[in-house]
């Protein structure tokens, strides 16, 4: 017949076992959350100094509509009347007629500011990240237009499909505190 001491030992054992299990679960959950939190601390982003606007961002993103969009650094932009990112290389005339626009989806909005300056905004709902305007700006202008991963769209895949397909390894991981790699006035062309 088991004595009283042995019965208490079993209870203790079960209690301690449960405590241990609880600790293990707590630790595991904490570790899992910490790992998730750490993973979410970093995002994919395009380094504009490496990007050649090849167009792969438009078609390799896992999303139906790419998370990559064109952006314009206004501190660099020349506000050109004759914006080579907006107009075809051989425009029929310098107005906003569709036949004169470089962007195949009409995603660049041209607004008169004051003579002779115009502002160029990207309508992100229309931009597919083909990079055509980026090339136009780089070839003739000062490179104020470039591509960035928009984090309100990006699902932050563990392995970004665009990063795999990028011919210049321009996709890099950036901390969420600085999720964009924006060009400044140092990038003169």
């Amino acid at each position: 017949m088991p004595n009283q001491d042995n019965a208490l030992d079993r209870r203790d054992l079960i209690k301690k076992g449960l405590h241990g299990l609880a600790l293990l679960v707590t630790g595991g959950v904490s570790g899992f959350l910490a790992e998730r939190s750490q993973a979410n601390s970093y995002h994919w982003q395009i380094d504009p100094s490496k990007c050649i606007a090849c167009g792969n961002c438009a078609t390799y993103c896992v999303l139906e509509e790419s998370a990559v969009k064109c952006v314009n650094t206004y501190a660099m932009c020349g506000y050109c009347n004759l914006c080579t990112a907006f107009f075809e290389p051989a425009p029929k005339s310098l107005n906003t007629g569709a036949e004169n626009q470089l962007c195949p989806t009409g995603a660049i909005l041209r607004t008169f500011i004051e003579e002779p300056y115009y502002e160029y905004k990207i309508d992100e709902s229309l931009c597919i990240a083909c990079g055509k305007c980026v090339k136009g700006c780089k070839e003739f202008g000062n490179g104020s237009l470039y591509l960035q991963v928009r984090h309100d769209r990006c699902v932050n895949c563990n392995q970004c499909a665009i990063a795999v397909a990028c011919p210049t390894q321009a996709l890099t991981r950036v901390h969420r505190d600085q999720p964009y790699l924006l060009k400044g006035m140092d990038n003169k062309a």
Partner: peptide, 22 residues
């Protein structure tokens, strides 16, 4: 599947920027 982008972006000619004639 062209996972590594070797077949290009697959976009049509209207998406290409070409100055060769100029």
């Amino acid at each position: 599947t062209d996972r590594f982008g070797e077949k290009g972006n697959g976009l049509g000619p209207e998406y290409q920027y070409d100055l060769s004639e100029l």
